[in-house]
Nucleic acid binder design. Structure first.
Lengths: 337, 337
DNA sequence: CTGAAAGCGCTTACAG
DNA sequence: CTGAAAGCGCTTACAG
């Protein structure tokens, strides 16, 4: 099972390798190679199942038809779903994906960018960790297309696709406020990621607009490093210490899942004792209680836009004005009780 | 921001490119290059942040330090968790991962293998679709290491890491039988994948050993193509038509999730009206009801063994006797009520 | 219309 | 101890 090379095909077709290359790259017409010869070459390529060796092509052309995808953690539903969507969109444009997880570790993030670069990826799709700012900056200087997803750096002029977390949080809060809830707690995590900050801002402004006082004691800000058990415990304690709370807004998927367990442990019923609002969807919520309100990220849409932005940069003819897409999250109210 | 090449370093160090290559590949001693020169070269490489261009190295050496991972669907929790574990284990051995999803589509599976081959991956980690048998066979003939995970082809002599699905099913069934359940339904999917067949076999043999008659009407075999809604509906109908059923064994994660919804719709309580046993773990189960019994796949262990098997094949010195690892699943009983 | 040649960046066997 | 050269498989500008 030896690989067939362009040379083998040339020998069999009785031409020189460059002719084969030209034909297989669709430049037969351009180079005025006879149809007869071109057809012969194509036929042999088909029969032998010829596939150009991508590494050779990359070395020669500088392009690999591969995109690098860097996410925080591929085993997390949100990123896994995003990766899948990205993969599909990329394939549709003839690109493959190399992916890797940063684990929110700056060093690993930097290392991964270097790795992808040495693989000659044609572009980068990144959900960056806060510490990756300077690396992303450097990457931009290399001229390779970069698109940030889900998070971004306000100071950097790099195209990005974001969810409008502020509006999402506002939407959700307004839903609760309209229903009459007045003692709404916020459970969030102490990452200084832009999306968390924006969600928190939505919480604040919504309260303001309804002329409600912001009560610091109703915000539970948990350390990112905490284990699942610790989070559950902290939320449970918080609920017990604040019996006045009539609704909880979980700023992220993961907190919501822990939160449900805490609610259960605290023997509170949804929605009788407590209304729940959560960012990011999860299979679990629907099943656990249909009255949980969700602010869902349009993952497919994010993937589509990200690939679109990347393709635009790859297309040399288009101007390279950094664009930022702001995606509207969707509110899912499954049960109006 | 030009890339620095081996040539640049050579110029700056006042040596010839090959000397740089030798030093950077740790062959300085071997080639009796003076420590002074070697140190100078290493220093310059460090300062300039030199990284060999992987495509050039691959083209020259035939090795890419990259492994190809083919899963069914990266957005599925099981595969996402597996991918993460594989990624971690591979990194520990200095390998990167290129991944792709087959969607259980044979054509796509074949296409992906070809893609990975043209990328010159050093080895393949595959959870194959049934139709990939001949491709896997061909792959083996190329001499590149291949390891199958989660599923395998009995006729093929390819190393694999499997979960002992039969024993797992037996374990779970025995647990139910010991608790006194006698009318145990099986909900499965009509894929002729080896793991599904094995789980079904476990169901049969367990009944046999307890001298219980196998009742065909208690097996619900659903088409793989069915949508989530269709599955939920089918299970709900099944439960209503079989009020005698006192326990349900869901052969897979996904069915279990749909099953819980069906159980809810059918207004049955767990475990009062119905005991639930399910293959594969999911966050949801624990939260939904602690009395659901789980047969959990040791994902980390699968990843470790798969990488181990691959590394063994990559190590030319070790004999290439195909090995198959059979991993013991773990039974998780959260609540003995 | 077709062929010969250079070169992408690297590694390694070989000569000195 | 160090240097010159070949070659991995491909593409493309150039010469005829």
């Amino acid at each position: 099972m030896k690989r067939v090379s362009i040379k083998d095909i040339a020998t069999r077709a009785g031409v020189v390798p460059s002719t084969v290359s030209l034909v297989l790259n669709g430049k037969a017409r351009e180079q005025r190679i006879s149809d007869e010869v071109a057809d012969r070459i194509r036929k042999i390529a088909d029969e032998t199942g010829y596939r150009p060796l991508q590494t050779a092509v990359s070395l020669r052309t500088g392009y690999s038809k591969t995109l690098g995808l860097i996410v925080e953690d591929i085993s997390n539903v949100f990123f896994a779903t995003l990766a899948k969507a990205i993969e599909e969109e990329a394939y549709a444009s003839g690109y493959k994906i190399v992916y890797c997880s940063t684990e929110n570790d700056n060093d690993k993030g930097r290392e991964l960018i270097a790795m992808l670069t040495s693989q000659q990826v044609d572009g980068y799709l990144i959900t960056p960790t806060p510490g990756m700012e300077s690396e992303v900056q450097k990457l931009k200087l290399t001229g390779k297309p970069v698109v940030l997803m889900d998070r971004y750096f306000p100071l950097l002029d790099v195209p990005s696709v974001l969810v409008d977390n502020f509006s999402g949080a506002m939407m959700g809060m307004e839903h609760l406020l309209k229903k009459g809830y007045r003692s709404i707690a916020l459970v969030t995590v102490d990452l200084d990621q832009i999306q968390m900050i924006e969600r928190e801002r939505g919480y604040h402004i919504a309260l303001q607009q309804w002329h409600l006082d912001f009560q610091e004691t109703l915000v539970l800000n948990l350390p990112y490093q905490n284990s699942q058990e610790q989070i559950v415990e902290a939320i449970e304690l918080f609920l017990k210490e604040h019996p006045e709370v009539d609704a909880v807004f979980f700023a992220t998927n993961y907190l919501g899942i822990c939160g449900l367990e805490a609610v259960q442990n605290a023997k509170k019923k949804i929605p009788e004792d407590l209304a729940i609002l959560c960012f990011d969807d999860h299979d679990l919520f629907r099943l656990y209680s249909p009255s949980i309100t969700i602010i869902r990220q349009p993952i497919r849409d994010i993937a589509k836009s990200a690939i679109h932005l990347l393709m635009k940069q790859l297309d040399k003819n288009s101007p390279t004005i950094p664009e930022n897409y702001l995606k509207q999250p969707e509110m899912v109210i499954r049960n109006s009780t």
